[in-house]
């Protein structure tokens, strides 16, 4: 079993993911006519937070302290199984994407419980919204992957992305376009981006994800912010792998192209955030159902051939 290449890939992901958020913020700043935060701002924040002494609410229990640890572990484990530039990660087996989605669910469960642990109505509100949107985004996610599985005939993520070639795009363009669109909408929802949520807002009553972690501080908050950056990479990597069919055999060349694509996706997210307002909270359900419909259509288009 190969160790070196997956290890380098994994390290690259772990080190580079906070850069994505920096890129998105820079793109948004450009649209707003500002210079923007430094690209490496999240790294500085993580360092600062790691060595701060946290404050814990007297209402909280072990769950509050465990939540960030389990959330970050879940996404780190998921990244170990995620393909990089079409190459498999450490773990690759039939059905690994099911495991990955449920790992995200594990992170969600403990984040929600940690939020409810504080006994604050703000965080309960955020938790309620988070679980509500999961009911719509998970079917969309599964069906998008089902469409991809049908298009490539494989059952593991790396298998699917390895089997995607420029020819497959020509043959199954509508299905692949639809499922990419569905995955992009799910990315915006799962990572609390406009139009689902505004990551820069200070208004607790409108937040979903940020308000769930309102009472966290110190290393816990560092874990949460880092986990959020990794989660953004996770979804971005799925889209990048779907959009960039592998062609050359060179690991370095494909890796560089993949990283370039991730930067393009970050820029796309920044652009979407800058040109539209966020949706009313009730309308987010309909956006996610739209993603579900895209996935179903993608699957049906594939069935037709």
């Amino acid at each position: 079993m190969e160790i070196i290449k997956p290890l380098i890939q994994y390290l690259a992901v772990i080190i580079l993911s906070p850069l994505l958020l920096g890129l998105i913020n820079r793109v948004k700043a450009k649209f707003a006519g500002r210079r923007g935060q430094p690209l490496l701002q999240l790294y500085f924040d993580l360092y600062k937070l790691s060595y701060k002494t946290p404050v814990y609410s007297r209402t909280t229990t072990w769950l509050f302290r465990a939540g960030p640890v389990i959330g970050l572990s879940a996404i780190l484990c998921a990244l170990a199984a995620l393909p990089f530039a079409g190459r498999p990660g450490f773990l690759a087996f039939d059905g690994d994407f099911i495991f990955l989605i449920y790992l995200l669910g594990l992170g969600r469960f403990f984040t929600v419980l940690a939020a409810l642990d504080t006994g604050s109505s703000f965080e309960g509100m955020g938790a309620s919204r988070e679980v509500q949107f999961a009911v719509f985004s998970e079917p969309a996610f599964f069906l998008a992957l089902a469409a991809l599985s049908k298009a490539t005939g494989k059952l593991s993520l790396s298998g699917m992305f390895l089997a995607l070639e420029p020819a497959s795009w020509q043959a199954a363009a509508p299905a692949l376009l639809l499922l990419t669109a569905a995955l992009f909408i799910i990315l915006l929802a799962e990572n609390s981006r406009v139009p689902v949520d505004d990551p820069n807002t200070h208004l607790e009553l409108t937040m979903i994800h940020e308000v769930m972690v309102l009472d966290h501080s110190g290393p816990d908050l560092a874990y949460i912010l880092y986990g959020a950056a990794l989660k953004l990479w996770f979804f971005g990597a799925l889209i990048a792998s779907a959009v960039l069919p592998r062609h050359s055999g060179s690991w370095l060349y494909d890796g560089a192209a993949f990283l370039g694509m991730m930067a393009v996706i970050a820029a796309a997210i920044g652009t979407v955030e800058s040109v539209m307002a966020r949706l009313r909270m009730i309308k987010v359900q309909y956006l996610l159902m739209g993603a579900l419909v895209f996935s179903i259509l993608a699957l049906l288009f594939q069935t037709g051939r």
Binding site: A32, V194, N200, E273, M276, A277
Partner: peptide, 16 residues
């Protein structure tokens, strides 16, 4: 108001 709905262009310009 546009900042509250996350519409950045107007929010930034009107701020200035």
């Amino acid at each position: 108001l546009s900042g509250d709905v996350a519409y950045l262009p107007t929010a930034s310009f009107c701020g200035r």
